[in-house]
Design a protein around this nucleic acid. Structure first.
Lengths: 118, 118
DNA sequence: CTTCAATATAGACATATGTCGAATCAAGAT
DNA sequence: ATCTTGATTCGACATATGTCTATATTGAAG
């Protein structure tokens, strides 16, 4: 294990086209300032979840636009949501963030933790 | 473990618009499968750097297109390059990757964290 | 100085993306 | 049923993006 195991897959060997395709969908979803803030607002909200009404006021954007961005984040596998009565609650999928994080981390900080990726 | 000290900025509190803008440029650069593979090819190449000629054959794309993607990665602050004779060598800027990684990691690796061992 | 090989830039073009207003849907409340 | 409020979907539009070909640039070698 201690040999060439120093790095993230990205640094250890060339990424396969398939994996790059999967990852790029998630990174692309994060590649918009509104979506990054949306994700952060959801993640940092009390209880780890937030309804659209909690967060849409933080932006100077129409409500359909917010809904669109949330959909992109959801389809990328970064968020999930559930309807509860009148409101729709969103929350982060931690394993997805963790996967992206570990793909990028050069020096594996916690050498023994196994990756959470399904 | 301290109370609110558990998480990345993204999870601990809402990302500012400025911070989100900076980060989104980098994430957007990673949001393309070709660029992800380019970054990985450069990062995993012997010596941590590669010239364009080393990597462009891995793609079924024109040379200008590769050059364009490398430029996007460079302008996002993820790669740097230098001309040496006829060739131009690219390498990863590790701090940039690390920054993105830690923004996404739920368990702050620099703190004396408690592993999430399965 | 001319030529050649490796990259980069410019210009063009089709497609993707972010945004909006209008319409629709879902679930309470009257 | 009808109205109201929260959220998604639809259709349109301007802009951004990925790709190409053609052209320019840079440096090395005859």
């Amino acid at each position: 294990m201690a040999d060439g195991e120093c790095c993230s897959p990205l640094i250890r060997e060339p990424l396969s086209a398939e994996w790059a395709g999967d990852l790029s969908v998630m990174f692309k979803a994060l590649g918009d300032p509104v979506r990054l803030r949306l994700l952060s607002l959801v993640a940092s909200h009390a209880g780890g979840e937030a309804c659209v009404c909690d967060i849409s006021d933080s932006f100077d954007l129409s409500q359909p636009t917010i809904s669109h961005h949330l959909k992109v984040l959801r389809q990328a596998g970064l968020l999930d949501c559930e309807r509860r009565g009148t409101w729709v609650y969103y929350w982060v999928i931690p394993a997805a963030l963790q996967q992206l994080s570990s793909v990028l981390s050069a020096a594996d900080p916690t050498a023994d933790t196994t990756l959470v990726t399904a």
